Computed example of a mutant assay.
Amino acid sequence: MSDLPKSVRIGLVAYRGAQKAALYGLADVFDVAARHASENGAGRTLVQAIVPAEDPETLDLAGHDILILPPNLSGARGAADTALRAALRRRHAEGAVIASVCAGAFWLGHAGLLDGRPATTQWLLEDEFREAFPKVRLATERILIDDHDIVTAGGIMAWIDLGLHLVARTLGSEVASLTMRHLLIDPVGREQRNYRSFRPVLGHGDDRIRQLQLQMEQAPEGDWRVAAMADRAGMSERTLARRFAGATGLTPNAYVRNLRIEKARGLIENSRLPVAGIAEAVGYSDLSAFAKTFQEITGLTASAYRKRFALGA
């Protein structure tokens, strides 16, 4: 490590609407990490600074090795922040690592830094982000993606994951472990799909498809094969499949899988029913098929999900 700089300078970009908890929380994480690095002879340290970025006239991102765009709580998406976007492009071209959390990824997208690259953002923003930046290889099931000079993190509180990741990347895993233990946090191994909810589209205007959806909500354990759905809707299977996908964005089978697992999540969180009973309640007669589907969609086994999210745990 002798050829590496002794100090890594991190700039926390305080643009308009930036989440203050992320700005000051990241500052604390890096300060704690720097202290442990010093006490344990790591040979390097972190120097953090909150960088004012609301006024284009005084904006200055120079001197920072890593720049972090925190979440945004105002609903803005960075399209109008031309000075900040230009400064980010310039610093990236000069060799700085650029990172974002949650909606902060929109600023990177508008700066043209994500085209053709893997990235993540808050899963609730997926449709909006894909529409704005179709060239980005978006993976919202991931909570953090390190693409070397660009690092993106998902949900609003994923600044914790990003902060610890950057500590490990710059100061090593031992300092990262000491920092986690000091702060009593351990986000390692999380994925956004652990938290993601299925939100059916109902405002599409196709009344017959919407009636099917409402019937599924009331009885997810029912017979929801395509043939049965087509019979209920009074149309051919081919027409049903086409109209259903056009209205909801999902094939009928994919919709049923997602709806049933969402219902199962709720039962796991709010009841003490055994997993086998929950599987049956949402329409799975084969427990192994339920277990496989649940883990594919949520990233966790049903028992691990209950341990983490059960409201009465």
Results as ranks from 00 to 15, higher is better:
296 E>M: 09
150 I>H: 04
113 L>N: 11
85 R>D: 13
275 V>E: 13
178 L>F: 09
113 L>D: 07
279 A>M: 06
259 L>S: 01
111 A>I: 15
89 R>Q: 15
120 T>C: 03
304 A>C: 15
118 P>K: 05
266 G>N: 09
233 A>L: 07
224 W>I: 00
273 L>C: 15
276 A>T: 13
19 Q>A: 10
16 R>Q: 13
282 V>T: 05
140 T>F: 00
294 F>K: 06
296 E>S: 07
145 I>Y: 00
140 T>K: 00
55 D>S: 11
130 R>V: 05
308 R>H: 03
244 F>P: 08
179 T>W: 02
285 S>P: 15
140 T>G: 00
28 D>W: 03
223 D>Q: 09
270 N>C: 13
210 R>A: 05
53 A>N: 01
42 A>P: 04
126 E>H: 05
268 I>L: 15
132 A>L: 05
306 R>S: 14
86 A>W: 07
119 A>Q: 04
34 A>G: 05
117 R>A: 06
32 V>A: 00
52 P>C: 02
27 A>S: 09
172 G>D: 01
155 G>P: 04
189 G>N: 08
235 M>W: 02
51 V>Q: 00
175 V>H: 08
129 F>G: 04
264 A>H: 08
120 T>D: 02
137 R>F: 07
212 L>K: 00
43 G>M: 09
264 A>R: 06
161 D>C: 05
256 V>Q: 01
33 A>L: 00
57 E>S: 14
89 R>F: 10
125 L>I: 15
131 E>W: 06
191 E>R: 15
200 P>Q: 10
3 D>F: 11
236 S>T: 14
199 R>M: 11
244 F>K: 04
121 T>I: 12
239 T>R: 03
131 E>K: 10
48 Q>E: 11
218 Q>T: 06
63 G>S: 04
173 S>N: 11
102 C>H: 01
203 G>C: 09
131 E>M: 08
56 P>M: 05
250 L>P: 08
165 H>N: 07
295 Q>R: 06
292 K>F: 11
60 D>F: 10
299 G>D: 10
224 W>V: 00
130 R>E: 07
191 E>Y: 09
184 L>F: 15
150 I>M: 14
